[in-house]
Every structure is written in C-alpha cells, then in structure tokens.
Simulated assay, not measured.
Amino acid sequence: MAAKKLRDVADQVKGLHVIMMLYTCDEIKTRKDRFGVHRSLHPHLDRDTRPEFILLRIKKWIPPGRTFFIASNERTPGFFSHLSVSYKLAYSSNYSSIIDPVVENNYQLFMTERLILMGAKTFVRTFKEDETDLSLTHDPKKNTKKWQIPAYSLDDSEGT
C-alpha cells in the first residue's frame, strides 16, 4: 500500500475534477533482423500511442469536453496537445502546488499518478490487461517473443 501522504495528495487532485484517465507508457523495444529490417515485440504500440490515433480511439468511449489526466513517460513537450481539440488536458505538473511539497522522487510521483488513475471514472490503459479494459492498443502486454515489423499507418487502427 502506498504511503498515506501519497494517498492524501492523490485524493486532493482527484477532488478537483471529475476526470477521465489516460495512461501511456511507450517502452518500444526494437531490433534489426539479419536483413536490417526493424522489428518490435509490440508492432502497433508506436502508432497506437500517437495523439492522432488516441483521439480516434477514445472518441468512441468518451464524449468531447471531458478533462483527461495524462500519466505518461513521454518527454516531447506538447506531445499530447493535439488531444486538446476535443478534451481538456491535465498532467501532474498542473498540480505541482499540491504534489511537489510531498513527492520527493520519481517513484513517489509514479505511485501518486497511479493512485490518481485508480480513482478515474474512465481509465484508458495502453495495453488491455483484462477483457473489460479500455486500451489504446490491441498488442498483447505480455512479451510474446514474436518480433514483427512495426505498423505506422492510421488506416490499420482497428487491426490487430
């Protein structure tokens, strides 16, 4: 169980909004095969976690105008800004006055974000872990050891 101070911070953030949650973790492992072709264990992950695809995917579950708390390890500034055409975006940095005095390291920030996510009205995961989960990708989370050529086309958004 997380420390009480982290639970309290998460509760304060959750109390500010009725929020939807989006969690992405882009850990794309690629390698070149013997012919020099890039392959990935999660061939659709890069495509499925791009903002334009996320927008297409979530609109069938969540009406426009909702606020999303985005927990992600994405480092590119403004990466998710494309989502703001339909949704209000929030990140842990928006709540720095609440979070910063308590959170001392990245592990505690991760735990605080997870606690916030657990209280979501709607939670969209990167990978589907359970049959009822809403997820950005159809790729299995478990490492299948099956290296495939990554897909980058939005035309295949409902594919495997």
Rank of each mutant, 00 (worst) to 15 (best):
Tyr87Phe: 10
Val85Arg: 14
Gly65Tyr: 01
Asn73Tyr: 11
Arg66Glu: 13
His82Gln: 14
Ala90Phe: 06
Glu74Phe: 04
Tyr87Lys: 05
Ser86Pro: 09
Arg66Ser: 12
Ala71His: 14
Ser84Gly: 09
Gly78Cys: 04
Phe68Lys: 01
Leu83Pro: 00
Arg66Tyr: 09
Thr67Pro: 11
Phe69Val: 10
Pro77Lys: 03
Ser72Arg: 12
Arg66Leu: 10
Trp61Lys: 03
Asn73Ser: 12
Leu83Asp: 01
Thr67Tyr: 09
Ile62Arg: 00
Ile62Ala: 00
Gly78Phe: 04
Ile70Asp: 00
Ser72Glu: 09
Thr76Gln: 13
Tyr87Trp: 10
Phe68Leu: 10
Lys60Phe: 06
Asn73Pro: 10
Ala90Pro: 06
Leu89Tyr: 04
Pro77His: 04
Ala71Tyr: 08
Glu74Val: 07
Val85Met: 14
Phe80Leu: 01
Ala71Phe: 12
Arg75Tyr: 08
Ser81Leu: 14
Ser81Arg: 14
Lys88His: 15
Ser72Asn: 11
Leu89Glu: 02
Lys88Met: 13
Glu74Trp: 06
Tyr91Asn: 08
Leu83Thr: 02
Ser84Lys: 05
Ile62Leu: 00
Phe68Asn: 01
Thr76Ile: 13
Arg75Glu: 09
Thr67His: 12
Arg66Asn: 14
Phe68Glu: 06
Tyr91Gln: 07
Arg66Trp: 11
Thr67Lys: 10
Phe68Gly: 00
Val85Asn: 12
Ala71Cys: 12
Phe68Thr: 04
Gly78Glu: 03
Asn73Phe: 13
Gly65Gln: 04
Ser86Gln: 14
Pro77Val: 04
Asn73Glu: 14
Ala71Met: 11
Asn73Asp: 15
Pro77Ile: 03
Thr67Glu: 07
Thr76Trp: 08
Gly65Glu: 06
Leu83Met: 04
Thr76His: 10
Lys88Phe: 14
Arg75Phe: 07
Lys60Trp: 04
Arg75Gly: 08
Pro63Ser: 11
Gly65Asn: 06
Trp61Tyr: 13
Pro63Thr: 11
Gly65Ser: 08
Glu74Asp: 06
Phe80Asp: 01
Ser72Tyr: 12
Trp61Val: 05
Ser86Met: 15
Phe69Ser: 05
Ile62Thr: 02
Ser84Ala: 15
Ala90Tyr: 06
Lys88Trp: 13
Leu89Gln: 08
Ser81Phe: 15
Phe68Asp: 05
Pro63Cys: 10
Pro64Trp: 01
Leu83Ile: 07
Phe79Pro: 00
Thr67Leu: 09
Tyr91Met: 07
Leu83Cys: 03
Arg66Lys: 15
Pro64Phe: 03
Pro77Ser: 04
Ile62Tyr: 00
Ser84Arg: 05
Thr76Pro: 03
Glu74Pro: 01
Lys88Thr: 12
Ser84Tyr: 07
Leu83Phe: 03
Ile62Pro: 00
Arg75Thr: 15
Leu89Met: 09
Phe79Ala: 02
Phe69Met: 07
Phe69Asp: 02
Trp61Thr: 04
Ala71Ser: 15
Ser81Gln: 12
